[in-house]
Design a protein around this nucleic acid. Structure first.
Lengths: 142, 142
DNA sequence: GTAATCCTTGACGCCGACGTCAAGGCAAGC
DNA sequence: GCTTGCCTTGACGTCGGCGTCAAGGATTAC
């Protein structure tokens, strides 16, 4: 098949395929007219790349998987180098998630604090005499 | 103070300050010699920007906080526009964390599956007679 | 006075994964 | 033969937040 058909079947673009080829990731045979020619195995390689890309893998990180498939393995992750990438990625994901959770909590705390401050200012404005500290256990002082 | 001192006191670079100025975020007065001149308030603005940047806020997202401070508020998040940014950011963080967790689980699952497959292949290689299904409840068949 | 250190503007570089446009070749339907 | 649509290579654009020169003026230290 030609580049347009492969791109469409994989849900991507011809530009992407040429880019992968320029990176040495998905080289193509050439027909007599100079057109790139692909087969079903190339589609499998491409789908492997796309899946990992969707996971957020860098293009370079997909290389071991592609080479593993090209070596004849039925799955791209049936090779030690691929497993190493998986493990490294897991560590990166865990670290990133932890960091994002920390940031999330800090931002959440800042938001809560700022909202309280705004509420207090609103009360202050509503009561011209100034802010009266509100005791949650007691009744109204006014 | 001049740009170098401000940069050092805020733990950043002169290039960064000029960049912020080019974005209209942190304009500077000029001395008679053309040098940029900053005061303590600018340091406060800058620290607000840097804190949010460290949280992963885009530069544009820090603008409401800076404008809030410049409007005379003691805190950059004492304005509705800043709170809106906080809330939007919280939503983005939650969504991103969820997505990353999903990816993490999928990658973890793939890793576990691939490791099992490798182990099975190893057993197969160790036992020339081929793979014998191992029943977790039963004993050794050999 | 002069060397070292600041400051100025301008402009290109970087990173990753492509998008987009240009100029032209090849193929297929009518 | 003419149009339409695929293909080719080449090259510049994108996005964000700066880094890194380069060439020259101002200031400061000695």
């Amino acid at each position: 098949m030609r580049i347009g058909e492969l791109a469409e079947r994989a849900g991507t673009t011809t530009r992407t395929l040429r880019y992968y080829e320029s990176r040495g990731l998905l080289p193509a045979r050439r027909g007599s007219n100079g057109y790139r020619t692909y087969d079903e195995d190339d589609l499998k390689l491409l789908r492997q790349i796309r899946t990992l890309q969707d996971f957020g893998f860098d293009l370079e990180e997909t290389r071991p998987f592609v080479e593993c498939l090209r070596a004849g393995h039925p799955e791209g992750d049936a090779c030690p180098a691929s497993l190493a990438v998986y493990r490294r990625k897991l560590g990166e994901l865990d670290a990133l998630i932890d960091e994002l959770r920390s940031v999330r909590d800090q931002v959440g705390g800042q938001l809560a604090r700022a909202e309280r401050a705004m509420d207090e200012l609103a009360s202050e404005a509503a009561v011209p005499g100034g802010p009266e500290p509100v005791c949650e256990l007691g009744g109204r002082t006014g």
